[in-house]
Structures are given as C-alpha cells and as structure tokens.
Design a protein around this nucleic acid. Structure first.
Length: 595
RNA sequence: GGUCUCAUAGUUCAAUGGAUAGAAUAGAAGUUUCCUAAACUUUUGAUGCAAGUUCGAUUCUUGCUGGGACUACCA
C-alpha cells in the first residue's frame, strides 16, 4: 500500500476514534508537504474544521497527537500551520521500504486481476504512408496497453485497417493513369510511399480538372462532381463493390505494397498487434444490428426506407444508421465491429485510440451501443488525442504538408549518431552495437517527445527546431540509466557481498528524496491506467532521473562515508535503475547499458 | 448559427479546489585532479479579459475575446 494511502487510512481511523465521524479515506486530502515547511506529507484539515466546529490548531493538535502516538513506526512528529497538518515520516520507514524493494524487479506490477482490455490503435489508411500524428496514436496505444498489463489486465492489441473506400480508389485511378506499370520494386520506393505518391497525384490532377471546368464557366461545386477523374473513381468503387476481378486484383496488389511498407515502419517503431481487422471484411457488419435495433424500437425507418436513431433527448442529433439504398454507414460498421470484438474476446473494456476530431462520433457510438444494450457498451472508452500540428497549421496528406514518420525516425537516429560521435564515449562498440544504440536513443527521444504531453491536448511540432536531447527528454532519462549501470558495473564485488549487511543510518535529504520518489511509482502506474494517460509515467520517470542526478553529483556511491552508506546507496542506485527501466518500457522506450 | 474543446514564463509543457503556480528550453553566471558534464548549481521570467461561488480559484459557474474540432445518406 502506498504511503499516502496509509496516511489517509490512519487519518480516517483517527477521525473515527476522536470524533466518531466516518470519513472515507479516499476523500481525505494528503499532499507532499511544501518544501518551506517541516514534514513529508500534509493532511489538509479545512474540510473538517467546519463540520467539527473546532479551530484548525486544536483539531490539528488532536489528530496529530493521535496519529503519532498510534503509528510510532510511521510518524516521528507533526506540526500545524493554518489548516495544514504536516507529518514527519520516520527515516526507519523509508529505510525499511528500500530494503524490502530494492531488488524487486516487478515493483509496481499488480497481480493479474483476470480482467481483459482491448486497445484499438494505429488504424491506418492504405492509401498513404503514416505521419507524425499517426506516430502519436501508435505510441499512445502501445503504451496504454502496456500500462494496463502492468496493472493486472490481460490485453488485446488490435488494429483496424482502413483498406477500402473512395480514398483507396483515388490512388488506384492515379496509378492506372500515370504509372505506366511502375511498381515499388521498379522505382526502388517503399511501398506505402509509392502508393501515397499516387494519392497526391490524384489530388493534383483533380484540382487541375476542376480549375479547367471552372474557367470554362462551370460552378465550382458542380465541377467537383463532374471532374472526369472523380467520376472514374466513383465508377471504380462501384466496380470494387461488385467484385470485378481486374479491380480487385489491382486493389490487392496496391494494398500489398502498402502493407510491405507498413511492416517495415511498424517493426522499427515497435508497434504490434494481436489481431488485425480489415475494413473490407467488416464493413458489412452491422446490417444485422440494424434489424435488431428496428425490432427493439431503438431505430426508426423513414418512408424512403433509410434508418435513423433519434438522439435529441440525449442532447445530440438524429443520426442515420442505414442509407435508403440499404447500405450501412460508418457508424453502423463500428457498432457491428464492436459487437464482433466482444463476441471474439469478451473484453471488460475496449479502448479506442482515435483523434479528437471524432469525439462526437465516439460519443454517439457508445450511446447507440448502450441503447441497443450490447454487453460491450459500457466498457467503451475513447482515448481521444489532439492533433500534432506544425507551426504553419494542420498537416494534410493531400497537400503533402506532413512530417513523414519514416523521415522523422531516420532523422532522429541520424542526430543521435552525430551526438554520440561528438561525445566519443563508446568507441569500442561494434558497428551493430552502434546502430542499435543510435536507434534506441533516436526512438527514445521521439517517443518521449510525443508521450510526455497530456494526450487530450493538441501539440505543436516545429521541424526547424527538431527534437531536443537535453532536459525533459528521453535521452536525459536514458543517460541517467546508463550512468547508474556504469557505476554498478564497477561495484560488482561490493554488490555480491552486500546482502548480509544491514544499515540503520539516518537519511540525508537527497537520499530520502530519492526513496520518496521511488515509493510513488505504483500509484503513478495506477493513475496512468485510470486516466489512459502515459504522460503521467513520462513526467514521473523524468523527475526520478532528475532527483537521482542531483543525488549523484552530491554524494559518492563508490566512495561513501562508510560501508553502511555505501550499501544503502548501491541499493538506491539499483532500485532507481530498475524503476527507470520499467517506466521507460511502459512508454515503449529501451534504455541502453552504455551511451 | 449550434455543440464540444483549448487559452499558464520568449517558447514547449506541469499543477485530484489548498500553503509563495512547478519543470524544460532559451537568456545570465558558475561546476570536470574523484562513480559517464547527453550531467549538476545559482539566477531572470507566466495563469487572455470581467464578474460570481468559496475560508481559499490556474482548477468550478456565467459572460466576453481569441484559437481548434465537429455539425455528410464520406470513412
């Protein structure tokens, strides 16, 4: 149990014993004590002052006295300032904590709860390569799944590939018109980029046709519909839906190129999936749902035979779920897929990692599922994340104003190579080891950069400034880890004999700060899972590394004042390094033994 | 127009209604006979505007200003 939780419980017991009032431990506010006052943790008393009609001083004294007298192993003293009860925790408590946990490699990990969570993330379109915004999605999804795993869940990572529809046909049409039979192989281009180029070519050609029609006197709206290339694309979509062999073959071939490209990227960035759904297989799901919904009276059919749901009583709009031609729309497919996922995996929770432009869609999806009383409905959660924007505005694939994922990854690796060479600390590494180190650091910088921010918030990426390697960054944390490991390597002999030795010293301030930081890790993981927010982990591990670095420059480990201090500090260093490693793993970031 | 969302140092980010709003970076000044200076120490600098609720508001409510998203029988 975490120490703040313990304090809440003891405070709740104190209130019960002293005043016969029942207060939920959860509702008691316990904070770290402000640095300017004496103490480690502070119980905020204002909430009880009114209720008990006592002065803050009297109340604080009574509770403080009770707490210290009844928890001798935990508290050594207290003081009261205004409505704040500051508690000083015994050094022996922290020392015990360190001794019990320093070599526990699964510190922070919860026992399996038997619960299952599905995380759907990545979900690419097969008409263009992935960009920086998709990377945010991939890193978030992977990390959230990992955080749940550590919190005792079984996880299923899924990906729904958007492999059909008008946008796919656009690339196909452009390829037919402009490629002269070129392939990724013949042009030595990565498959997803190859196809993406034709998507851009489509839009260029489309724009040119519209301009021509407009200059010939047609209204813009009509020109958008009448442009021959658009008509051809719509014709192709009909052909696809009818299963015309030539179109299907081209579709398979071009999607195949894209998948080859994606595989390379996924492998580099470390995204993986337990199950991949293809929209071409699932887009017809939900038809049955429409019938069931009509039978239950959740949906209504209009005279033109289109089917709707009226959500105006829930503050939303009327929403179509089936077109008058009987085909299903996006949301219906999603309902069907939600149902199918539940039938296949029976997850307690289903997290959708999807951009915040779909907040409304996801709200509607969950609401409809609830109205249909699907068993999966209440477990639906939308991990909504903000766009990654350039200083000039939004990234648009169509206009080519995107930060390409492969390019930014390559750039980060190149920068880490340059920096590593400048510092010249690993000259004895083999070529393969070097390459791995550059990748570890470059990807570490990129992942940390995208994960350290609250997912819900939009973030701005400035390509001119690139991504920093100093301060609140991945490489900073990686460096701290490598430095600890270096020290520990040199102290192997001392470590092998230290298990016998006990210490009972008073703690120095920086030693205590470090233990206090380490103690918080399990609570942080819980918080990150509750809020679907990996940035909590990133902020935590940065603070831990920072605290260690302050400790490290101030106090020597190898040349500690005495043997007991040496052992204590070795244990502190060991514990810090394993916690850093675990935390960074939760973000999908590796830590190097040397750098 | 309607709905949702965001606004904090020059910049990028923190802060379950709690004490003098934290970091990073940029700027200024320092630290390498001793465990990795991708580090450390010191320092300058911020809650869009106006009300309200509260012992206490960056946080909650309302209005205003300014961004963004959504508002398709597209996905």
């Amino acid at each position: 149990m975490s120490i703040t939780h313990k304090i809440k419980e003891t405070a709740s017991l104190a209130l019960k014993a002293l005043y016969q009032i029942d207060v939920e431990p959860k509702s008691i506010l316990v904070n770290a004590t402000n640095v300017e006052f004496e103490g480690d943790y502070t119980v905020v008393l204002f909430a009880f002052i009114k209720q008990l009609k006592k002065s803050p001083e009297a109340l604080g004294n009574e509770i403080g006295t009770y707490l210290v007298e009844n928890n001798i192993s935990l508290f050594s003293s207290f003081n009261i300032i205004k409505g704040f009860l500051n508690l000083v925790v015994n050094d022996s408590y922290w020392v015990n904590f360190l001794q019990q946990n320093h070599s526990n490699n699964s510190f922070g990990k919860k026992e399996n709860t038997g619960k299952k969570v599905m995380v759907e993330y990545s979900s690419p379109n097969t008409n263009k390569p992935i960009h920086l915004g998709h990377l945010r999605n991939n890193f978030l999804g992977w990390s959230v799944a990992e955080i749940y795993k550590t919190n005792g869940y079984n996880t299923v990572k899924t990906c729904i590939v958007n492999d059909r529809g008008i946008h796919i046909c656009k690339s196909m049409i452009a390829w037919q018109m402009f490629a002269n039979g070129a392939t990724p192989q013949s042009t030595n281009t990565k498959g997803d980029h190859f196809v993406g180029d034709y998507y851009v070519k489509f839009n260029d050609a489309y724009k040119a046709e519209i301009e021509k029609l407009v200059s010939d006197g047609m209204a813009k709206e009509q020109a958008e519909k009448e442009a021959p290339i658009m008509k051809a694309t719509q014709q192709m979509l009909l052909g696809w839906e009818a299963g015309e062999p030539a179109i299907m073959q081209l579709w398979r071939e071009m999607n195949g190129w894209v998948y080859e490209g994606f595989d390379v990227t996924y492998k580099t960035i470390g995204s993986d999936f337990d199950k991949t759904y293809y929209e071409s297989n699932t887009y017809l799901l939900g038809k049955k749902i429409v019938q069931e919904g009509l039978a239950k009276g959740v949906f209504e059919q209009e005279e033109d035979s289109s089917v709707w749901i009226d959500l105006t009583n829930d503050g939303l709009d009327k929403k179509i779920v089936q077109r008058r031609d009987g085909t299903s729309v996006y949301i219906t497919q999603d309902i069907g897929l939600a149902q199918q996922k539940f039938e296949e995996y029976g997850c307690d929770k289903s997290i959708y990692v999807i951009g915040d432009e779909q907040n409304y869609h996801m709200k509607v999806l969950k609401l409809i599922c609830q109205k249909l009383q699907l068993p999966s409905a209440d477990g639906i959660e939308h991990l909504s994340y903000g766009m990654v924007e350039l200083p000039t505005g939004k990234m648009k694939s169509r206009e080519g104003t995107v930060v390409d994922a492969d390019e930014i990854v390559a750039e980060m690796i190149a920068i880490s190579k340059q920096r590593t060479e400048e510092l010249g600390k690993v000259k004895d590494f083999t070529a393969a080891e070097l390459q791995q180190l550059y990748t570890t650091i470059g990807l570490g910088a990129l992942k940390f950069f995208l994960l350290r921010v609250d997912p819900k918030k939009r973030m701005i990426f400035n390509p001119e400034e690139s991504i920093d390697f100093h301060g609140f960054t991945g490489p900073f944390v990686q460096y701290t880890y490598a430095r600890i490991k270096s020290v520990l390597r040199k102290l192997e002999v001392a470590i092998s004999t230290m298990s016998e030795v006990k210490y009972s010293e008073n703690l120095l301030k920086l030693e205590k700060d470090l233990i206090i930081n380490l103690e918080q890790f399990p609570s942080i993981i819980e918080e990150a899972a509750n809020e679907n927010d990996p940035s909590k982990i990133a902020i935590y591990v940065f603070n831990l590394a920072k605290t260690f670095n302050s400790f490290y420059v101030e106090h020597s480990i190898a040349n500690a004042e005495n043997a007991e201090k040496k052992i204590l500090r070795i244990q502190l260093a060991t514990f810090t390094s394993s916690t850093i490693k675990t935390a960074m793993r939760l973000l999908g970031i590796d830590v190097p033994e040397r750098m």
